[in-house]
Design a protein around this nucleic acid. Structure first.
Lengths: 217, 217
DNA sequence: GACTCATGTTAATGGCCTTTACATGAGCGC
DNA sequence: GCGCTCATGTAAAGGCCATTAACATGAGTC
């Protein structure tokens, strides 16, 4: 009994409804925004009755929260892959990290919307919160590596650095890099905007030149 | 014939419905988020039938866009007041500007949601777009003042600086400073986080000390 | 082979969005 | 003051959605 993920015929039971509903949600959010996505339409997309989804999610918000949680997991994977333990050097790894953040916002607008814009309180769902914190942890680890390379005198708190870079990157992603129509125009690629800001910020931290191969002018 | 803005009795005609609907929308968005706000409930709040709002707004989205436009106007006023022509010095004025941004997100979550999170395409409504650009223009003017105080050699583009600061501030506001439940916890006030980032960024620009009375360590 | 229970369906309630046809009365020319 | 007109309101209706309750199916188990 494996219809797998396919669209083939089915009997009374779907067999894979929960997964199918999540994919339907992603599809619909991508097309019409998180507000435009409806429970009933996801059911229709999956070929089941409007009541069927309630066997798998308490309500519409729980589905959205599940999508957000999965989004944070994918996000964490993408960020970790980009960071790659800070190799070959911290700065270029950070650069990849930022680009991966922007790229995620652009390539996965549905996940991104569910994660940051659907109005889900992160505290509501413990798993969602944990997944969100795991994603941030990548950035925090990276920041710790970054500041650990600095002289102990005047070394900034890694948490603060992580929050700064998160905020900056998130701001650029939200304003300029999303895949949907809410994106604003920009006279340069968002990746370049971010890289420039990052290098300026690093220089301000006292990591000007010589720590890595990037960032010279 | 002035019921003014009051809640008093009225005849067949409301007399001030458009304004009342906007205020109802703000009230409802603040209570239940932009998704929770409904056209019908705004009508009920105003004491009119569900069809009445359609005499003033094409649909629910147009009301939301109008709220967003008004939000950008209030926002522009708040930013201009904070900037105050860069007095007494550029850096402290910039500092006020950032705090005003964060404060707006915290004190006017309904406006903020409508402006940045309601999923309204800025291009849809020309007036909305213009209002949004007027707000950004304050930041851009401030950035021009900032870089104009730098030596011409290696002076960064003012537009880039404005975009950097906008993104950073917007990121902090979105993640940590909103009034609603989507706000994340932070080990320090968002204002302090922003100020620290701003000073680091300025130092990275080569505006370390001496340009103004703030930002020394 | 019968039982059980997760997973579907059907049907119903109530709310919302939006349109159409109709009602009211405020402002205006006279 | 009188009557017209039109902006601004109401009532009613259609269609969609969320959610629930009662019922149906059939996959796995003993």
């Amino acid at each position: 009994m494996t219809w797998g993920k396919g669209h083939g015929p089915r009997g009374y039971h779907h067999g894979n409804l929960k997964e199918t509903l999540v994919r339907a949600a992603l599809e619909l959010i991508e097309q019409k925004g998180p507000a435009g996505f409806t429970f009933a339409e996801a059911a229709r997309w999956a070929g089941v009755s409007p009541a069927a989804p309630y066997r798998h999610f308490r309500d519409r918000d729980e589905l959205l929260a599940d999508v957000a949680r999965r989004g944070f997991e994918q996000f964490t994977i993408a960020l970790k892959r980009a960071w790659e333990d800070g190799k070959p050097d911290v700065i270029s790894a950070f650069d990849r990290l930022g680009k991966a953040y922007l790229n995620f916002a652009k390539r996965e607008p549905a996940y991104y919307s569910a994660m940051f814009e659907a109005g889900i309180a992160p505290d509501t769902d413990a798993e969602l919160r944990a997944a969100s914190e795991r994603a941030f942890a990548v950035l925090r680890t990276a920041s710790e590596t970054l500041v650990s390379g600095m002289p102990a005198r005047g070394r900034p708190p890694a948490l603060m650095v992580a929050l700064h870079i998160w905020s900056l990157t998130h701001g650029i992603a939200s304003l300029f890099s999303r895949g949907d129509a809410a994106r604003r125009a920009l006279p340069m690629p968002p990746e370049d905007l971010l890289e420039a800001a990052f290098l300026i910020y690093l220089r301000g931290l006292g990591l000007p030149d010589g720590t890595a191969t990037a960032g010279r002018d």
